[in-house]
């Protein structure tokens, strides 16, 4: 097996990823302050930061979706079962034995099958729900005035959904950050997310 460096993440991708990371972390911190879990920024400032980050995130999310379709990168998120078993086995067993990762990254296949399915669910289900419930939460008082759009009679179920998915995203974040340490070195994955370049092993044919 030989090693080589490939340019895996374009400048936009990296900018998008880290901006989203900052926004999501700030949204979680301020969101749980608004939920009453602790006090940090002060309630009013937490609300202001949360709303600012939320709106910024919506814009960023649409830019990302646009980028996905223009570049054809959406194909990276088509789920596959190929090597899925091996990848799961690797993380639950092989990694302790010092075995090498069964999936080999390339420009055409950036994500392993586990990443594909998790990112797809996240980007097409969890995040849109969080964004939509956030928008509804932010504008709920306007809906009755605009007529016919009062889907929920009270903000209660919307707040429930928004809180539930905040927990799900928090859980993703914890696992996601942990997984970055499973590269060649502890910080090699994080480094490549900054530089764009990733060291990959080429399977010896």
């Amino acid at each position: 097996m030989s090693e080589k460096k490939i340019y895996l993440f374009t400048r936009f991708e990296r900018l998008w990823h880290w901006t989203q990371a900052v926004l999501i972390i700030l949204l979680l911190i301020t969101g749980f302050e608004i939920h009453g879990t602790y006090s940090l920024f002060g309630y009013k400032r937490a609300v202001t930061i949360h709303n600012f980050c939320g709106i910024t995130w919506i814009i960023l999310f649409f830019l990302f979706v646009f980028w996905l379709f223009v570049t054809g990168e959406w194909k990276q998120y088509i789920p596959t079962s190929k090597k899925m078993g091996e990848v799961i086995l690797f993380y639950s067993y092989g990694i302790f034995k010092g075995r090498s990762h069964p999936f080999h990254k390339s420009r055409e296949h950036k994500h392993n099958p586990l990443q594909r399915i998790v990112y797809l669910i996240l980007a097409s289900f969890f995040l849109p729900i969080q964004i939509l419930s956030g928008i509804y939460y932010y504008t709920y008082h306007m809906w009755p005035k605009m007529g016919g759009f009062a889907i929920f009679s009270s903000i209660n179920p919307v707040a429930f959904i928004h809180t539930l998915f905040a927990f799900i995203i928090l859980q993703f974040l914890i696992i996601h950050i942990y997984m970055t340490t499973t590269g060649e070195t502890l910080f090699s994955h994080i480094k490549s997310m900054f530089t764009g370049w990733e060291k990959v092993e080429e399977p010896s044919n």
Partner: peptide
């Protein structure tokens, strides 16, 4: 529903456990 005052009993406890 008052944010910061209200909890979702099961959700809050279960979610923090998870």
């Amino acid at each position: 529903y008052i944010p910061g005052r209200d909890r979702f009993g099961i959700l809050d406890n279960l979610a923090w456990t998870i």
